[in-house]
């Protein structure tokens, strides 16, 4: 399962868990997250994330 890590603060977006408290359902693929979404921990943009295979 793919995970994405914020390059600035290390927050991990886990596709399996999604972000329910932000209205992003579990299983939501990274590409399906809106482009103006911001990292919940540091507000950096989506473009500042790296795909991390875990």
């Amino acid at each position: 399962m793919k995970q994405w890590q914020c390059l600035v603060c290390g927050f991990i977006y886990d596709q399996q868990q999604g972000l329910p408290e932000e209205g992003i359902a579990p299983g939501t693929a990274w590409d399906d997250i809106p482009d103006d979404w911001l990292c919940p921990d540091c507000n950096v943009g989506k473009s500042d994330f790296d795909m991390v295979e875990i």
Binding site: L38, D41, C42, N43, V44
Partner: peptide
């Protein structure tokens, strides 16, 4: 506020 989120905004 010397931390990241205010800087980004």
């Amino acid at each position: 506020l010397p931390f990241v989120m205010p800087l980004m905004n």
